[in-house]
């Protein structure tokens, strides 16, 4: 049973705790240090994944659990990753439509379009 499994695997929780603290400090350091935005993003998310793995493997004992963990967690993980991928083409690629301008860029373009057509209509008046 799980308790027996757990007891037979001694984990140095304090060491894991220190790793998690160091990782948190690293996240903040990456934010403070002058570096490009994409690099910060990659590093910070890599640190987050490391922390998540530490928590799942050692604090949640998944490292010592049997294969049922794959049966239980694989479907949810696949669905969880699938959702953003499914949304991306519709929303991630172009969220706001030109009919609902939200940014200065769109507003500017629409103003130019209207000014152009107003001038054209004015010139056509005999």
């Amino acid at each position: 049973m799980s308790h027996e499994d757990h007891n037979t695997h001694h984990v140095n929780y304090l060491a894991i705790f220190i790793v998690l603290c160091v990782c948190t400090a690293l996240s903040v350091a990456f934010d403070v240090l002058p570096m490009s935005k994409p690099l910060t993003m990659v590093l910070v998310l890599a640190v987050a994944c490391t922390k998540a793995l530490c928590v799942m493997m050692f604090f949640m004992h998944l490292k010592f659990e049997r294969n049922w963990k794959y049966v239980l967690l694989a479907p949810t993980t696949i669905l969880a990753i699938g959702l953003p991928l499914a949304l991306f083409p519709d929303i991630g690629a172009s969220y706001y439509t030109p009919t609902a301008p939200q940014t200065g860029v769109w507003a500017e373009e629409i103003r130019e379009y209207q000014a152009h057509h107003a001038a054209k209509a004015h010139s056509e008046v005999p």
Binding site: L72, L79, L87, T103
Partner: peptide
């Protein structure tokens, strides 16, 4: 397992919205 999907829906949606909003 259900909680993973619950929070991933929010986090995933946030990531997608953010990528789509310059």
């Amino acid at each position: 397992g259900t909680e993973i999907m619950f929070f991933t829906a929010f986090i995933g949606t946030y990531i997608v919205l953010r990528l789509g909003s310059r």
